[in-house]
């Protein structure tokens, strides 16, 4: 089986079925089959409709959003290590939400825009750092700066949690990254901005592909790099803000998903973005299913699993003799 068909057909199906039928509780594949044939228990029905369906749907959307954001950021900064989690975009988003809860808000409806504003601020800092980078274009340096920023923002988040018990209780699970226990309404609240971000992604894919040839080449082909950069950053902020509102600041997904997509489809950003549509949800659902199984009947936070899987991948990419250029 080729890598391509594995990631495009086999794994997505496996991931979807696993996410729907496996859990840390007692409802397993047998109960799911019984439910489908119309004679499942009430417990199984509740677990499916109230827990696993929304959880899986959220997993798909968050996987899409973070995978595409990673691919966009990597293409824009021409750095295979750039991803929202490592660069502080997710952390900016998380801090904004934490501050919002600290100030007394507990409405899910305003969480998404606040998270998106936080993500935009995080993006702004990334761009500033990328500008300071100078002509050397050392990919690891950008990531060091981003990781420092990310660490700082997450520390501020922790500080707020320590100082304010109510906030801490509200966000303890969310802040490590998790998609369990979310409601349909929370997913629906993010869909309009996700759709908008999907549209701008489609608009920006071609110009972004030509910017990979160099900014001057892109100008020669009739694009305006400044405008493209603005659109990409807005898109990433919309996606990451929405994903963070749903799942907390997740690290490494934005790294792993485009990495796999490029391994399948080559360097063209347009192909990478399309492949992220399949790879993103697959990776996220598999990681989330692992969370439920590894320490059953308890659960690991998703953020822990993605870090456990993503960190070695990051080390591997850095250790490659030649950094892949974008």
């Amino acid at each position: 089986m080729t890598l391509r068909s594995l990631f495009l057909w086999a794994l997505p199906v496996i991931a979807l079925l696993a996410s729907l039928s496996l859990g840390s509780g007692s409802v397993g594949p047998g109960d799911v089959l019984a439910l489908l044939s119309g004679n499942g228990s009430d417990e199984a029905r509740f677990v499916m409709t109230e827990l696993r369906f929304p959880r899986t749907a959220i997993g798909i959307v968050v996987g899409l959003a973070l995978g595409i954001s990673g691919a966009l950021l990597q293409s824009l900064t021409r750095n295979p290590l750039a991803e929202p989690g490592l660069l502080g975009v997710s952390a900016g988003s998380a801090l904004a939400v934490t501050v919002m809860i600290l100030m007394g808000s507990d409405s899910a409806a305003i969480t998404t825009p606040v998270a998106q504003v936080g993500a935009l601020a995080g993006c702004g800092l990334v761009v500033a750092v990328a500008r300071m980078q100078g002509p050397g274009r050392d990919p690891v340096r950008l990531i060091l700066a981003g990781a420092t920023l990310s660490g700082l923002l997450l520390s501020l988040t922790s500080l707020i949690m320590m100082a304010d018990q109510r906030t801490a209780n509200e966000i303890r699970f969310w802040v490590t990254g998790s998609i369990s226990g979310r409601q349909w309404e929370e997913l629906f609240a993010t869909l309009p901005s996700m759709a908008l971000a999907g549209l701008t992604t489609a608009l920006v894919a071609r110009p972004l592909a030509s910017m990979a040839l160099g900014e001057h080449v892109a100008v020669g082909l009739g694009y305006r790099p400044g405008r493209v950069q603005f659109l990409v950053i807005t898109t990433v902020a919309l996606f990451v803000g929405a994903a963070t509102a749903l799942a907390g600041p997740l690290m490494f997904l934005g790294l792993a998903v485009p990495f796999i997509a490029r391994a399948i489809g080559g360097p063209d950003i347009r192909r990478t973005l399309l492949l992220c549509l399949a790879v993103g949800p697959t990776v996220l659902l598999l990681a989330d299913t692992l969370c439920r199984l590894l320490v059953a009947p308890s659960e690991l936070p998703l953020g822990v699993t993605t870090a456990l899987l993503g960190a070695p991948l990051m080390v591997m990419i850095v250790r490659r003799h030649r950094m892949p250029t974008l």
Binding site: A212, L213, G222
Partner: peptide, 22 residues
């Protein structure tokens, strides 16, 4: 409009690079 200019004027700059595998 930059796009219309690009139908009449092509540029081959010095600063250019090609992504691996292109």
């Amino acid at each position: 409009p930059s796009r219309e200019v690009a139908r009449r004027l092509a540029l081959l700059p010095q600063d250019k690079d090609a992504p691996q595998g292109l």
